[in-house]
């Protein structure tokens, strides 16, 4: 595999930006994929996120770590524009969310459990769904859409299996199909909800390989997880969340015992678990 030239994007592969804790306002940084400032989200008076701020650089694999109910799903929903924040701003690639959505910048990769694998669609159909936001009302694929689907499927090595029904794929192939959809969409920010649940070690390795390619291309991958080993294994940045962003930045600096203790302290969370994906 040939690596694309490095340094095309800011933060091409390394170095990662310095760590910042929520308490210390960060110094200005070069262009970021995700910029969240003072984000507050509440559902009918129940606070889900309070004064959350974070930055994710272009070209990074960022772990989003927190307990169930800590606000990981809420943050994802906010980044996709599903919830209206009561305060704060979100910018994707420096632009407001509405523009990011028009540009198809944010892709969501669902949890394995939340997908109906018996649904009568082919692998190519699923990847084509990544293109719908760029098509006209009838969603009739144009040559460039077919081309994008082909390229995306080839990148995840599923082109030969494109006519299979989606459920006929193995666990790892299924994950790659949804990553191909995000690629076909042309997303620069990928949100992955617990991507390693029920995934074997080999599949995990293949996925991480893809994430590293995405990083080199300047995409940013935000992975929600509660598995610290994953984060230590291949993330270069981390966001610690417990109803607010406790700390974010380079992993060596943020992943301290003290920060982790605060992340997993039930006193601050105290919310019931919310299993399942984003609906």
């Amino acid at each position: 595999m040939v690596d694309p030239p490095r340094g095309t994007f800011p933060y091409g592969s390394s170095p990662t930006p310095a760590a910042h804790t929520a308490a210390q306002p960060p110094t200005p940084l070069p262009p970021e994929r995700i910029t969240v400032e003072g984000l507050c989200v509440d559902y009918h008076g129940v606070v889900a996120l309070h004064e959350a701020s974070l930055r994710v650089a272009a070209g990074s694999i960022c772990g989003l770590v927190g307990m169930n109910g800590a606000g990981k799903s809420t943050l994802f929903k906010a980044l996709m524009g599903f919830v209206r924040p009561s305060r704060g701003t979100i910018r994707i690639n420096g632009a407001p969310l509405a523009q990011a959505r028009r540009e198809q910048a944010v892709a969501y990769v669902p949890q394995t459990e939340s997908v109906d694998w018996n649904f009568p669609v082919s692998v190519a159909d699923v990847v084509m769904m990544g293109r719908y936001g760029r098509m006209n009302l009838l969603r009739r694929p144009r040559p460039q859409d077919r081309q994008a689907v082909r390229e995306s499927l080839e990148r995840v090595a599923l082109w030969d299996l494109r006519d299979r029904q989606i459920g006929e794929l193995s666990g790892g192939q299924r994950k790659r199909a949804f990553l191909a959809r995000a690629l076909a969409q042309g997303a620069t920010v990928l949100l992955l909800d617990e991507p390693f649940n029920g995934v074997d070690i080999r599949t995990e390795g293949l996925m991480v390989e893809l994430f590293e390619q995405f990083r080199r291309e300047g995409r940013s991958v935000l992975i929600s997880t509660h598995d610290l080993a994953h984060v230590r294994g291949f993330c270069d940045q981390v966001v610690l969340i417990n109803r607010t962003v406790l700390a974010y930045g380079a992993i060596d600096e943020v992943f301290t015992e003290e920060n982790l203790a605060r992340t997993f302290s039930a006193v601050m969370a105290g919310l019931e678990a919310s299993p399942g994906g984003i609906r």
């Binding site: 996709m80 599903f82 892709a107 719908y132």
Partner: peptide, 17 residues
């Protein structure tokens, strides 16, 4: 096509606008 996507993956449908 929109309705198929809505039945299959409403979250993705919403996230692409």
């Amino acid at each position: 096509r929109d309705l198929i996507l809505f039945c299959f993956d409403p979250t993705h449908a919403r996230s692409i606008g």
